[in-house]
Amino acid sequence: MADTHSLFFGDEDGIKTPWQILGFALLVLVLMGVSALIESNINPYVQRIIVNCGIGIILGLSLNLVNGCAGQFSLGHAGFMAVGAYISAYLTTVLMPFGGFFQTELGVGVAVVAGGLAAALSGYIVGLPSLRLRGDYLAIVTLGFGEIIRIVFLNISAVGGPRGLPGIPLASNFFWVYLWAVVTFAVIYRLIHSSAGRAILSVREDEISSQSMGVNVSHYKVVAFVVSAFFAGVAGGLFAHYQGFIDPNTFNFNRSVEVVIMVVIGGMGSFSGAVIGAILVTMLPELLRFFAEYRMVIFSALLVLVMLLRPMGIFGRHEIWEASWLPKLKRKPKP
């Protein structure tokens, strides 16, 4: 069980739990303040892009765990997002158990977590083949799972089939999205800097050696997939409750590719890379509105060029706070 403990609390720098709680409370207050400021002062269109960036950050960070840290290659992130979006929206719009509970803000929060859990379950199912496959094969299988999930939703008329599911309560906002973004960052960061995280990184570096060092390779691959899928599901739930409408077409292969581009551009294995990548990928299409026709061409050309000219992405495996020109407060020991 030491394993699970380190998974959630880390074992590296022993920050005591009360401090963590205090820090978290402070953070919530700050986010609430910023949220109020943004909602009263900024144009709703810009707000929408900022929130979309937040959702992108959750997606990018979670995919980075699988693609960057664990060295697997998943091309089905949109599928997990779809599971989270549909399950949570189904709870708040169609099923509505416990009376009006799921219409309240708290209820939506619970629904989003439920969506995340459902996505985690599907992540477990998708993670299983990763035990036997790697590289290209895994990419194709995850792509296939993503598409199968979409085709399944397309054929369920209870959630609208191709017509989509309208009228989802608009409960998520800047505050919730960025709170979850911080939670995602914290959980995955702590995970990677724990003993479990070192095991995950060792799987990326050399599967066979780490196996022979006694690392349970299959276990950690599945852990990476499940955690990653959970947050993708949460992102889907937040997305659904921000858009108010979802249809299967929203979660197609292009969406998965978009998330992959975020991670690749930022630098696979870098947290700050995933964040910056998510912001860039979300904002670029808006900046390029003038060139609407060239937008996708530019996007795909960018992907090829990054691979040819700077395959490690903007950050490589490094983090923003490791930059040499920043004042050296306390260098984290590298894993």
Binding site: G135, D136, S300, A301, M307, P311
Partner: peptide
Amino acid sequence: RLNVLITAIGVSLLLQNLGIL
């Protein structure tokens, strides 16, 4: 190999979108 794979996906998307254009 991962980089080559990503490049291949990129080339595929690029040709599709150039085709549309």
